[in-house]
């Protein structure tokens, strides 16, 4: 019950934050664009399919969600500590666990609402335009996005529990985001390009990156294979066959759980007196 109260307050705080609405609006626009261009195939006589634009949209989605999760997660703890309200909250008859998981749940609800809103708007567009048969694909994407939101929130809370100041947390979360979305790929590409990393190694190394896990899961869910990723995709599909998606999702689930637990263990031990 207390967790729920904290969660509601956290969600309320998020709703009052203009950045939240900026992110939500941006995400809704992206989702609408995804529905309009990719799932409805409106630009080509009703021919639907998964094309370059679809992939780009998914790419954008997977960039926006971690950015939202990381920044809001990291600022959730540090912001409250800087305002001094966290110390007062901790002085109440409520455990640290309840506060932490309440805040986490509140952020999950906020981010989830943002995603559902974005996907909901474009889902309405789909339905009105007669693309209701795509709802399964759409729902899979929503479910995966929620999972990615959990991952990024967990990482954001990690950053927030390790940093004392909001500015530092924001900077660190942006660095983490860039690392996941760009630098990790760049390193792997460099290794693969110089033939230091074989196909199998490239695939397995990429699994260490939750953004890649989401991307591979989304592609596999929407397309039933990873062939578009070339030899690495073919290797993954052939090696793990129908276990590929469960393995990817399990990896994503681990990423959703472990950072959150880690950040909780850090948060529990730290002093939050500003």
């Amino acid at each position: 019950m207390k967790v729920w109260n904290i969660a509601r307050k956290e969600a309320q705080d998020a709703r009052r934050n203009r950045w939240y609405w900026f992110y939500t609006g941006a995400f809704a626009l992206l989702s609408l664009a995804l529905a309009g261009t990719a799932l409805l195939g409106s630009g080509f006589g009703g021919l639907a399919g998964f094309g370059r634009t679809s992939a780009s949209m998914i790419n954008l989605v997977l960039l926006v969600i971690p950015l939202m999760g990381l920044t809001s997660g990291s600022l959730s703890l540090t912001g409250e500590r800087e305002r001094g309200t966290l110390a007062y909250l901790l002085a109440q008859p409520i455990s640290r666990a309840e506060i932490f998981w309440g805040k986490f749940l509140g952020q999950v609800l906020s981010l989830g609402a943002s995603l559902v809103l974005g996907f909901g708007l474009s889902g309405l567009l789909l339905g009105r335009a007669g693309g209701a048969q795509q709802w399964q694909m759409y729902a899979v994407l929503l479910a995966l996005s929620l999972l990615l939101a959990l991952v990024s929130l967990g990482l954001g809370f990690c950053v927030g529990s390790l940093c004392r100041r909001s500015s530092a947390a924001l900077g660190a979360s942006l660095v983490v985001w860039l690392g996941l979305a760009f630098f990790a790929d760049m390193i792997l590409m460099g290794l693969a390009g110089s033939h230091l990393l074989p196909v199998a190694g490239l695939f397995h190394c990429s699994l260490a990156n939750p953004v890649q896990l989401f991307r591979l899961s989304a592609l596999l869910s929407l397309r039933a294979n990873l062939d578009m990723l070339g030899p690495v995709g073919v290797y993954a599909t052939r090696t793990y066959q129908h276990w590929t998606l469960p393995a990817l999702l399990s990896g994503l689930a681990l990423w959703a759980v472990l950072p959150a637990l880690f950040s909780y263990s850090i948060y529990r031990k730290r002093s939050y007196l500003g």
Partner: peptide, 17 residues
């Protein structure tokens, strides 16, 4: 062009990279 030379790089198709 890079992927044509080294198809393994297609892993990074449609990424920010």
């Amino acid at each position: 062009r890079l992927a044509d030379h080294n198809p393994a790089l297609r892993l990074f198709t449609q990424t920010l990279l």
